[in-house]
Simulated scan of single mutants.
Amino acid sequence: MSIPNADADGVLAEQLLRLTRRLHRIQKQHLEPVGITPAQSRLLRTVSHYPEPPRMADIAARLEVVPRAVTSLVDALEESGRVRRVPDPTNRRVVRIELTDDGRTTLRALRNARRGAAEEILAPLSADQREVLGGLLSALVDGALERKC
């Protein structure tokens, strides 16, 4: 069993950070025509994954942010017509967030923007290299999830 080289791990960590920053920049460029911020995009995707409209506290927990941050995002998305606040049918003090038709249209545009960003960043890789990278990234993500649980 070999001991990982700390210098090599440091270089790899730096490469991953640079790649992450580049990915964020490219995604932001692809999101600009949609007229939405990356944080608003995350909120829309999060809301879309719930079987019924979630509470703002549910969204905050899923996004791992404070509830006030969700309120600001929902305010902006509601103003643009992409989400709406609806009363909870069982507890009138609870407000739920649901996607509007414009919100669903925006999600489709976001998927296209993300696909375009992915194509741009992965362009230098062959299909085989992409498959290997996917396996490596899955191993890293799965390992992080196992430690978190």
Results as ranks from 00 to 15, higher is better:
Arg22Gly: 11
Leu43Trp: 06
Ile36Met: 01
His49Cys: 12
Glu64Ser: 09
Glu32Asp: 11
Gly35His: 01
Leu23Ser: 10
Val66Ala: 13
Arg55Trp: 10
Ala61Trp: 08
Leu12Met: 10
Leu44Trp: 02
Val47Cys: 05
Ser48Ala: 15
Leu17Ser: 10
Leu63Ala: 03
Arg62Phe: 07
His24Val: 05
Leu31Met: 03
Tyr50Gly: 04
Tyr50Cys: 05
Pro33Tyr: 05
Val70Gly: 00
Pro33Gly: 02
Ala13Gln: 12
Ile26Val: 14
Asp58Asn: 12
Ala69Lys: 09
Thr46Met: 10
Arg18Glu: 15
Ala13Asn: 10
Lys28Ser: 08
Ala60Met: 05
Glu32Met: 08
Glu32Ala: 07
Leu43Gln: 04
Leu19Tyr: 15
Arg21Asn: 13
His24Asn: 08
Gln40Glu: 15
Pro53Arg: 15
Gln15Glu: 13
Ala39Val: 07
Leu44Arg: 01
Ser41Lys: 14
Val34Asp: 01
Val66Ile: 13
Ile36Asp: 02
Arg21Ile: 08
Val47Ser: 04
Arg21Ser: 12
Thr46Cys: 14
Arg42Thr: 06
Ile36Trp: 03
Leu31Phe: 06
Leu23Val: 11
Ser72Val: 12
Arg68Ser: 09
Ala13Glu: 09
Leu63His: 03
Ala69Gln: 09
His24Tyr: 07
Pro38Asp: 09
Tyr50His: 15
His30Ile: 00
Pro67Arg: 10
Thr71Ser: 12
Pro38Gly: 10
Val70Arg: 03
Asp58Lys: 08
His30Asn: 02
Pro54Tyr: 09
Arg45Gly: 07
Tyr50Leu: 06
Leu16Pro: 00
Leu19Val: 05
Glu52Pro: 03
Ala57Trp: 07
His49Tyr: 13
Gln29His: 02
Thr71Asp: 12
Val34Gly: 01
Ala61Gly: 07
Leu44Gly: 01
Arg62Glu: 08
Ala13His: 11
Tyr50Glu: 13
Leu16Gly: 07
Val34Ala: 02
Ala60Thr: 04
Ser41Gly: 10
Thr37Lys: 11
Leu73Gln: 14
Ile59Asn: 00
Gln27Cys: 03
Thr71Gln: 12
Pro38Met: 09
Val34Tyr: 02
Leu63Val: 03
Arg42Ser: 05
Thr71Tyr: 13
Glu32Gly: 00
Glu52Val: 08
Ile36Phe: 04
Arg18Leu: 14
Arg45Glu: 14
